[in-house]
């Protein structure tokens, strides 16, 4: 919050949390809640579900905090755990984590249409809500890779490992996701221009 009592460091909080100290757990939560919740929300596009997922991610982390030895950054550990919780949920619901379309058309080399200069242009900036709405429209597989790479900053090899696909698959899905987002955003802009 505005003036968090961060007199103790994250490392100290981790040690205190191992002793069952509530304030330490809360500090760790406060430090990472936005990142974790935002990730969940981007991936599932549903606030109630995102809350449940964020809760589950933190619980899994806190239950295992005794095993944390600091060999990797705490945040890295937490974010990977969050991704796993979300992916698990998607799989449980039968949603494709890797786009089926992608695996079917991976050899498909159909040239895209030339982009006419009459197209609406995105130059300038992209409104966050518009981008969120566009991400929501992505097929789950594309969305996963796009969120993990472009929003969360995971590398393709990490995504491949987390999601269970090839690195090439991750790369091409990312590219297709971006192209789709561009189309959605242009479409939204055109609609907005029409309606004033």
């Amino acid at each position: 919050m505005t003036d968090p009592k961060q007199r103790i460091t994250e490392a100290e909080a981790i040690e205190q949390a191992k002793q069952g100290d509530e304030a330490a757990f809360e500090l760790l939560y406060q430090l990472h809640k936005r990142r974790v919740y935002s990730l969940c929300l981007r991936m599932v596009s549903n606030p109630a579900q995102a809350e449940d997922l964020a809760q589950e991610a933190f619980l899994q982390l806190f239950r295992k905090i005794g095993t944390f030895r600091g060999e990797s950054a705490f945040s890295t550990w937490l974010h990977r755990m969050t991704v796993n919780v979300v992916l698990m949920q998607l799989r449980r619901k039968g949603l494709p984590v890797v786009s089926l379309e992608e695996t079917l058309e991976s050899e498909d080399e159909t040239p895209r249409k030339e982009f006419g200069t009459r197209d609406v242009r995105l130059t300038g900036s992209i409104d966050r809500l518009q981008l969120q709405r566009a991400i929501d429209k992505l097929p789950p597989g594309y969305r996963t890779v796009f969120v993990l790479h472009d929003v969360e900053g995971f590398e393709h090899n990490e995504i491949a490992e987390l999601v269970g696909c090839s690195i090439g698959n991750s790369k091409s899905q990312l590219h297709k996701a971006r192209l789709k987002l561009r189309d959605y955003l242009k479409f939204m802009r055109a609609e907005k221009a029409k309606t004033g």
Partner: peptide
């Protein structure tokens, strides 16, 4: 456009408060 989309996406990383 694609660069813009990526950089806009990066800004979303901590945008939501639970």
């Amino acid at each position: 456009d694609l660069k813009l989309i990526s950089s806009a996406a990066r800004q979303m990383v901590e945008s939501e408060e639970p």
